[in-house]
């Protein structure tokens, strides 16, 4: 459990309490630094408790997301720098993160950075998960973020981070990353 550490800065600026939310929302994702944690949808809640402790809730994208510790440290650091003495960063696991939580602004920033944003995530249904054995049917599509052509192909379902697949544009021939729907 990570609890707040006491810094020298006051938690108040003059008599006006600073809102911690914009500070937390501005922290960027360590693996996709064009996105803030708010854009990515992993920042679930920012609130100030009765005792003045800032409680921040984050959720992992994938179970094995190695960036959680860095996100936590960056949030603590940013909030401490902004003068919040007591900060408690908590993990929430449920409901599980989905790419549908990436904001419209986040999608725009991804495309601008040459990364194709995800389409709609597959529906989550109770009961057994159906098997997809159709090798010929493309499992997902993405327009080229560089030239806009819809004529692209998947090179690898798995990329340099857990969130991304590798694709190539058949028009401009450029390779690009695609945040895959989950």
């Amino acid at each position: 459990m990570v609890s707040g550490r006491t810094l020298r800065q006051p938690g108040r600026r003059g008599d006006v309490r600073v809102d911690p939310r914009p500070v937390a929302e501005a922290v960027v994702d360590p693996e996709l630094p064009v996105l803030t944690l708010a854009d990515l949808g992993v920042l679930r809640d920012v609130r100030t408790g009765d005792d003045g402790t800032v409680v921040v809730e984050i959720t992992p994208t994938y179970s094995g997301c190695p960036a959680m510790g860095v996100m936590r440290a960056d949030l603590l650091h940013a909030l401490h720098d902004a003068g919040f003495e007591q900060v408690d960063v908590r993990t929430v696991l449920s409901p599980a993160w989905s790419t549908d939580w990436i904001s419209a602004e986040g999608r725009r920033k991804l495309a601008e950075a040459g990364i194709a944003p995800p389409g709609a995530a597959p529906a989550r249904t109770p009961g057994p998960v159906p098997l997809d054995l159709d090798l010929d049917r493309p499992r997902r599509t993405a327009a080229c973020p560089l030239c806009g052509s819809p004529d692209t192909e998947e090179v690898s379902e798995f990329g340099a981070t857990a969130c991304t697949a590798l694709r190539r544009c058949r028009q401009c021939q450029e390779p690009f990353e695609h945040v895959k729907e989950i």
């Binding site: 990570v2 809730e57 510790g69 936590r72 650091h77 408690d88 960063v89 929430v92």
Partner: peptide, 19 residues
Amino acid sequence: GDEARWAFGTGFDDPLAGV
């Protein structure tokens, strides 16, 4: 400014922190 920023080798956080 924060050594945890570089804790890729060891020192991983409890994955259930705050749960």
